[in-house]
């Protein structure tokens, strides 16, 4: 948390976020995996000097995991705030990553915090926590169409200021990869060109896209002398697919680029 996180501004996202902060509005961030959503929130939290509570959602996440629960201590039980309650009580950004993975009844717990009430009721202790002025709720999800079935309840999503993220422009992405991985712009540019080609196959031949994160992994390997073909194969291609009929043409594609 002490080192300042590098974040390359792509559009007006910082500005919009600042307005949302100013008016204490909750924010929803949509975007494909590894495009910089989490990095953006970390960056904003540092800019604002607020603590960040990140929760990665999963399908077994209960309301108690967010709000808090009783634990057993030496003198009997005591109440332990969950990350959401703690952020609301002490002020800070509560970031629920991949909210779509959480069950729908869990997300309903967010409703009273995400509208004008800005309160959360703890059923188990009977307490109603009024959110601190510095409290902010941020949720994110990946709207690729495989997630269509899960979706986010309209009543939940309508409570948020929503921002769409995507992979950065090629030139911006190249400079990010170059900066993060410590490789020259030309090599980073070629990596980004390769990624652009592979991304054309997303949702048709591939389930996931090459993320900026994976490009940085490949770049890091390249920077320490790993041959380009290997770095791309293990960092970009293998994470995407298991099917031999898909691997072969993608390896050819890598060969075409390097």
């Amino acid at each position: 948390m002490n080192t300042c996180t590098h974040y390359q501004v792509q559009n007006d996202e910082c500005e919009i976020f600042q307005y949302a902060v100013q008016h204490r509005l909750p924010v929803l961030i949509k975007g494909p995996t590894g495009c910089g959503k989490t990095r953006f929130i970390e960056h904003m939290a540092q800019q604002l000097g607020r603590p960040l509570y990140t929760v990665s959602c999963h399908d077994d996440l209960t309301a108690a995991d967010l709000l808090g629960r009783h634990l057993v201590g030496p003198e009997g039980t005591y109440w332990q705030d969950g990350p959401l309650t703690r952020a609301a009580r002490e002020g800070g950004i509560c970031y629920l990553d991949e909210i779509i993975e959480a069950r729908k009844d869990t997300t309903v717990a967010l409703h009273s915090l995400s509208d004008h009430r800005r309160t959360v009721h703890l059923e188990r202790t009977g307490e109603t926590v009024i959110a601190h002025d510095d409290f902010m709720l941020v949720i994110s999800y990946n709207p690729s169409y495989q997630n269509m079935v899960k979706g986010l309840k309209p009543s939940t999503r309508q409570r948020f200021v929503a921002m769409s993220f995507d992979y950065p422009e090629p030139s911006v992405e190249a400079s990010i990869v170059s900066h993060e991985a410590g490789i020259d712009e030309a090599t980073a540019g070629q990596l980004v060109k390769l990624a652009t080609d592979i991304r054309r196959l997303t949702d048709i031949d591939l389930k996931a896209a090459v993320s900026t994160r994976l490009l940085i992994y490949a770049g890091k390997m390249l920077s320490s002398g790993c041959p380009a073909r290997k770095a791309c194969l293990y960092c970009l291609i293998e994470p995407l697919t298991d099917e031999p009929s898909t691997l072969e043409p993608l390896i050819r594609l890598v060969d075409a680029h390097f």
Binding site: D205, E248, L250, R252, L253
Partner: peptide
């Protein structure tokens, strides 16, 4: 065929 089709689409051929 399957591999070439994928390669064609990756290089920006009409989907």
């Amino acid at each position: 065929q399957a591999e070439l089709t994928l390669y064609y689409h990756a290089l920006g051929g009409a989907p």
